[in-house]
Simulated scan of single mutants.
Amino acid sequence: MRYLFLLICLCMAFASQAQDLIYKNDGKIIGAKILRTDSSFVYFRHTEPPKQLDSIAQSEVSKVEFDYSQKAFKSSKPFSRNAVSVSIGGTSVLLGISYDRIIGQERNYHFSGRIGIGSLSRQTNINTHLSFNFYLNKVRTQFFEVGAGLAIPLNERNSIDYYNLYLTAPILGYRIQRYEGFFFRVYVSGLYMRRPASANSWISDVLYIPTIGLDLGYSF
């Protein structure tokens, strides 16, 4: 009976050390508790102290062995690369709709582009953004954004008479983009507008307006 008890204790000790194994292309093996995967990365917690959270690109992994006795593991859905939103302010000027797409994804950031239609009174514009989004948390749902944009009016506003060129200043912002569902983005930028020379002056007028933009929508 004493030996049976000892055997049970040993089995429990080995079970408590059970872990997943990540085999890298360079031959190294990482002992880990895998939290989830997507099409680009494996997210895990190291089993060695201090047991920090980490991630590794799928391209660096040759294979993964799961401890199937740990049934809590569930593979997550791929990262949502698309988002549609209602746009307020920013390069939409007043109100608009936009489509956002993750173009490329790296270990510490992703590169995204946006195209939208905005309006103000009788004027409509097409606007676009290109930005780098740096991860602010381990699960990669919050980002610090740096980029630039362009807004081109489709028709003139005769009441103000600024002509067909709006350029935005560099964009600084914050976004929440989960693996599916709620999409939020807030950013600061500016509109640079130019009016052609009038009969009274051969010098064109220039106006720069700082602006804040807000996008609320759905990622998928």
Rank of each mutant, 00 (worst) to 15 (best):
P170E: 00
I29F: 01
A32H: 02
Y43R: 09
I56K: 11
S119P: 00
S39G: 11
R36T: 13
S16Y: 10
L216G: 01
P210F: 04
L130F: 12
Y109P: 03
S39H: 02
I203H: 02
I103L: 14
S189P: 04
H129P: 07
A18D: 08
I102R: 09
S131E: 03
R122G: 13
L10S: 08
L35Q: 11
T37K: 14
M193S: 13
Q142H: 12
Y99A: 09
G104S: 14
F144D: 07
N200Y: 03
V93R: 11
I102Q: 07
F73I: 13
L4P: 02
S219E: 02
A57D: 11
G149D: 02
M1E: 11
N127P: 01
I97M: 09
Y109M: 12
T91C: 04
K74N: 13
I103W: 03
I29Y: 01
L191S: 03
F41S: 07
F111G: 03
R36N: 05
A18P: 04
E65I: 15
R185A: 04
N158H: 10
G90I: 11
F182I: 15
K63A: 06
A151D: 02
Y208W: 08
S59Q: 08
I8A: 06
P210M: 11
K77I: 11
R122L: 07
Y179S: 15
G116H: 07
G147Q: 01
F143R: 05
D26P: 08
S131W: 00
Y174W: 08
I117E: 00
D26K: 05
Y218F: 14
H46Y: 15
G31T: 09
F44D: 07
I203A: 12
N158Y: 11
K24R: 13
Y23V: 05
S112C: 03
Y3W: 09
N125W: 02
E106W: 14
R140K: 13
D67T: 04
F41W: 10
R157W: 03
F79Y: 12
D100S: 08
L53S: 14
T128Y: 01
Q17F: 01
D100V: 02
Y218D: 07
I209S: 09
G217R: 08
L216I: 15
H129E: 15
N133C: 06
I30T: 11
H46S: 13
L4S: 10
L35I: 15
F111I: 15
D54I: 03
K51M: 14
L35V: 15
S112V: 04
S80D: 05
R185Q: 06
Y187I: 07
R194V: 04
I56E: 05
A169V: 10
Y68A: 14
I102H: 02
P170M: 01
Y192V: 15
S219T: 13
R185P: 00
S39V: 13
L154W: 00
I203M: 08
N125E: 07
V84K: 00
Q17E: 12
I171V: 14
L10F: 08
S85H: 06
K77V: 11
Q123G: 04
L95R: 00
D205F: 07
Q17H: 07
Y179A: 15
I126Q: 01
S85G: 08
V139F: 09
L150Q: 03
S204E: 06
Y23D: 05
I30D: 04
Y163W: 08
E156S: 10
V206T: 14
K63H: 10
V139Q: 09
V42M: 05
L154T: 15
Y162N: 04
R2C: 04
I160D: 13
N137I: 10
S204K: 13
